[in-house]
Amino acid sequence: MLAIHALKKSFVTPEGVRGAVVDVAEFALGAGEQVALRGESGSGKTTFLHLIAGILAADSGKIMVDGAEMTALGEAGRDKLRAGKIGYIFQTFNLLQGCTVLENVMLGMAFGPGGADRGRAKEILRRVGLEARMEHFPRQLSTGQQQRVAVARALVNRPKLVLADEPTGNLDRRNSAEALRLIRETCRESGAALLLVSHDEEVLAQFAGARDFAALNRAGGMIAEGSK
């Protein structure tokens, strides 16, 4: 499902010095597999996920997603591949505050292979327990409910690969456990592979053999991710 070879990405600091952030020799994830990576702030984990999703272009190396080479595509091609194959759950949710819950999920479908499907959007919102909140705006929801919207938006296109960047980082313990259960269960039901990164040991403990991203990333995340 996901295969990475010799992936590198660097950035120029405000001082004009180029520093490596991601340098991953090999990484692979099988269809339907669920893997967690332990990653502290500034380790390069968010950049790594952005590269896999095609949000950022790699300096060099190869990323294969369900048989398609992300790294061979221009920005428009990466956007199309991401819309068709990848669901991304952001730590900060990235919901549009001027749009309703239903509209946020439908916007997630706009660039997908089937276009916006109101019925499918409603179906996934019912699946995540938000049937009564579809016409609410994000500001009218609790933090846990906003995360459910983010999960629904990531999964509505039935992606082959789901990326989750600290998906419980803004939640309390109860909502964190519920969000993680929802993400994993929905991925299993749809057959999607899941790659999750977190620094929360309670979250990581739910995955057999969680791996340290620092051990994969030879660059060591030299530039603080929040500075880019």
Score class of each variant (00 low, 15 high):
Gln34Ala: 08
Glu26Tyr: 04
Leu7Thr: 13
Leu73Trp: 09
Ala179His: 12
Gly67Cys: 04
Asp117Phe: 06
Ala28Asn: 06
Thr13Ile: 00
Leu182Met: 08
Pro159Asn: 14
Ala164Glu: 01
Cys99Glu: 12
Leu204Trp: 04
Ala150Gly: 00
Ser198Cys: 05
Pro14Met: 02
Thr46Met: 00
Tyr88Cys: 02
Lys228Thr: 11
Ile183Gln: 01
Arg82Glu: 11
Gly191Ala: 01
Arg38Asp: 01
Ala179Trp: 10
Lys45Asn: 10
Val149Gly: 14
Arg153Met: 04
Phe27Glu: 01
Ala132Asn: 13
Leu73Asp: 11
Leu161Gln: 08
Leu107His: 02
Lys85Asp: 10
Cys187Leu: 02
Gln206Thr: 11
Phe11Ala: 10
Arg148Leu: 07
Lys8Leu: 11
Ser142Phe: 00
Gly67Ser: 05
Gly220His: 12
Glu131Trp: 02
Arg181Val: 14
Gln97Ile: 02
Ala76Phe: 12
Gly54Tyr: 03
Pro14Gln: 08
Pro14Lys: 09
Ile55Glu: 01
Glu189Thr: 13
Gly61Gln: 02
Leu73Glu: 03
Ser176Trp: 00
Asn104Ser: 15
Glu201Trp: 06
Gly209Gln: 05
Leu96Met: 03
Ala31Lys: 08
Val149Pro: 06
Phe93Tyr: 10
Leu163Tyr: 08
Leu96Phe: 01
Leu7Ser: 11
Arg118Thr: 15
